[in-house]
Nucleic acid binder design. Structure first.
Lengths: 218, 218
DNA sequence: CCCCTTATCCAGTAATCTTTGGAATAACGT
DNA sequence: ACGTTATTCCAAAGATTACTGGATAAGGGG
């Protein structure tokens, strides 16, 4: 049978057609991860994750790298990230269901927030070195890549470490991306501790997909 | 059951996960079409096309408009076009299979062609009014939307009407998009008739997705 | 009103995808 | 070599999706 260009294209489409695979892509968008780590973070069976990763690999959306007994997976390139971003944008603007799912997930439909910083503003603030930037994602994701100069303060530790921030001029929290609640929560928690903080409009995913520099390690 | 944001996102992904649906999207990217017209163009059963259109509609990627007994479908917006374009780009750059499928489909792996015009160049030529632009797609697609000022010369009529073009300074042919062979063929046929022609690098799909003006009717 | 056209709905069958546990593999340390 | 850890491969059950033909609905024209 003569496989057409549409058949091949559909392979890429199919890869994006499963909620579980999307969740994996979302995690990988934060940076490299091992199979086991993905399974734990997404609460899926190990073999299930492996199977999905094979699908993603076959459609050339992810790549793997062996390090000892562990295998690290990562997105195949920034264009994949851009595609994922484009898909989320379309879903958000076109689908009322997605809008509702997001609102119920993210809590407040915005409006009463202290302050939101756009990516462009943050870039400016980073250059002048005036802001304290908090990465509130799990430490593992911070290590896999973060905004240069950011400080890792995982959401779980925010309250305990709020005192570190009293007196800081301009505190800005960020997390995974526009679909992620952690920065919202962090700002709310900090506010309860008397620390005024703003949050980045989107997050690491969009930072990467727009080609901004990423710092790895630590 | 609590449907997550990923479930909703996957609805959009799934829509792009079937070769048949992609073919329909590809046709709709050329402009509005009725169900029957889509079925004929894509060589699918009428009920099959209808079913696929329902899936696309449920994921808010297409919209429909009734006119008498006919129902016209079109893409829901330019962002859908952009997403489709992004997907094709990723597939082309990432997947060797797609590259091979395209090469075997498009014939020559390029290199020996007389001339290729980029979208930017064409825009310049249109302003100065120097070029004769040929739309070699089926007349129906020309009517559903074409590059302003283009002349409709369907591929099937190219040889018969080649004489119209002898003496023309700069002839440029275009078709559906980067995955379409018609402009390649047209240039080859014209060359055989002694008319030197160039072709647009991509086609109508990319013209639309980059927000260029579109002329409808005739 | 009836008939014709166009398209959707429905139900059954076929095909494909997902998940899961257990076996196989690959690298590592001893 | 041998056991240990991390992951993939395999096969079977379960779930979803696709295709088909016949029935149904919605408009238009005589």
């Amino acid at each position: 049978m003569n496989t057409t260009a549409f058949d091949e294209l559909a392979v890429v489409g199919k890869a994006f057609g499963s909620p579980k695979r999307l969740e994996l892509i979302d995690l990988l968008a934060q940076g490299e991860r091992t199979v086991e780590s993905l399974a734990k973070a997404a609460d899926m069976g190990l073999t299930t994750v492996s199977a999905h990763l094979q699908v993603l690999k076959l459609s050339n959306l992810v790549q793997s790298r062996r390090e000892g007994t562990k295998i690290h997976y990562s997105l195949a390139g920034d264009d994949v990230l851009e595609l994922y971003d484009a898909m989320r944008t379309v879903a958000r603007t076109r689908s009322p269901q997605v809008q509702r799912a997001l609102e119920s997930h993210l809590g407040v439909p915005s409006g009463d927030e202290v302050g939101i910083v756009t990516r462009e503003e943050l870039i400016g603030l980073l250059e002048s070195g005036e802001a304290v930037v908090l990465d509130v994602r799990p430490a593992e994701e911070f290590a896999a890549g973060h905004i240069p100069g950011a400080r890792s303060v995982p959401l779980a530790e925010v309250i305990a470490r709020a005192s570190e921030l009293t007196g800081s001029e301009d505190v800005i929290a960020y997390c995974r991306g526009a679909f992620c609640v952690m920065a919202h929560d962090a700002v709310r928690l900090l506010s309860g501790e008397g620390v005024q903080a703003r949050r980045l409009e989107d997050g690491m995913l969009e930072w990467r997909s727009h080609g901004q520099p990423v710092e790895v390690g630590r």
